[in-house]
Measured scan of single mutants.
Amino acid sequence: DHWHVHIDGERIRLDGASEEFIRTLEELIRRGTDARELKEIIKEYLR
C-alpha cells in the first residue's frame, strides 16, 4: 500500500507504513502535535 500525508504543505510518502502507524499518526494529528515534530516521527519510522 502507498500512503502519504500532507504536513505543512509538504507531501510525505509513507511507503510500507503499517495501518497501526497510520492510526498513531492520525491520533497525534488529532492531539495537535506540531508539524515539525510529526515530520521527525515519520523520518524516524521510515529509517
Rank of each mutant, 00 (worst) to 15 (best):
D1Q: 09
D1E: 12
D1C: 05
D1I: 07
H2Y: 10
H2I: 09
H2S: 14
H2L: 04
W3G: 08
H4Q: 05
H4C: 06
H4D: 08
H4I: 09
H4A: 04
H4L: 06
V5M: 05
H6N: 12
H6M: 14
H6K: 10
H6A: 10
I7Y: 01
I7P: 01
I7C: 01
I7H: 01
I7Q: 02
D8Q: 09
D8L: 04
D8W: 00
D8C: 05
G9Q: 05
G9T: 04
G9S: 05
G9F: 03
G9I: 03
E10Y: 02
R11C: 08
I12S: 01
I12R: 01
I12P: 01
R13P: 13
R13W: 15
R13G: 15
L14E: 00
L14G: 02
D15M: 08
D15I: 13
D15A: 08
G16E: 07
G16C: 05
G16M: 07
A17C: 02
A17G: 05
S18W: 04
S18P: 13
S18N: 13
E19P: 14
E19H: 11
E20L: 07
E20Q: 11
F21N: 01
F21V: 04
I22M: 11
I22T: 06
I22N: 02
I22Q: 07
I22D: 00
I22V: 12
I22Y: 08
I22R: 13
R23T: 07
R23F: 07
R23M: 13
T24M: 14
T24N: 13
T24Q: 13
T24H: 15
T24A: 13
L25V: 11
L25D: 00
L25N: 00
L25F: 05
E26L: 10
E26P: 00
E26D: 10
E26N: 10
E27L: 08
L28C: 05
L28T: 03
I29M: 09
I29T: 03
I29R: 03
I29C: 03
I29Y: 03
I29A: 04
R30G: 10
R30P: 00
R30Q: 09
R30A: 13
R31S: 13
R31K: 13
R31T: 12
G32D: 04
G32T: 03
G32N: 07
G32L: 03
G32S: 04
T33A: 11
D34F: 02
D34G: 12
D34L: 08
A35F: 09
A35Y: 07
A35C: 06
R36S: 13
R36P: 08
R36N: 14
E37D: 13
E37N: 08
L38H: 00
K39H: 13
K39G: 06
K39W: 11
E40A: 13
E40V: 08
E40L: 11
E40R: 12
I41T: 06
I41A: 08
I42C: 02
I42L: 11
I42K: 00
I42T: 01
K43C: 10
K43I: 12
K43M: 13
E44N: 08
E44C: 10
E44M: 05
E44K: 07
Y45A: 13
Y45Q: 12
L46D: 06
L46H: 08
L46T: 06
R47F: 09
R47H: 14
R47T: 14
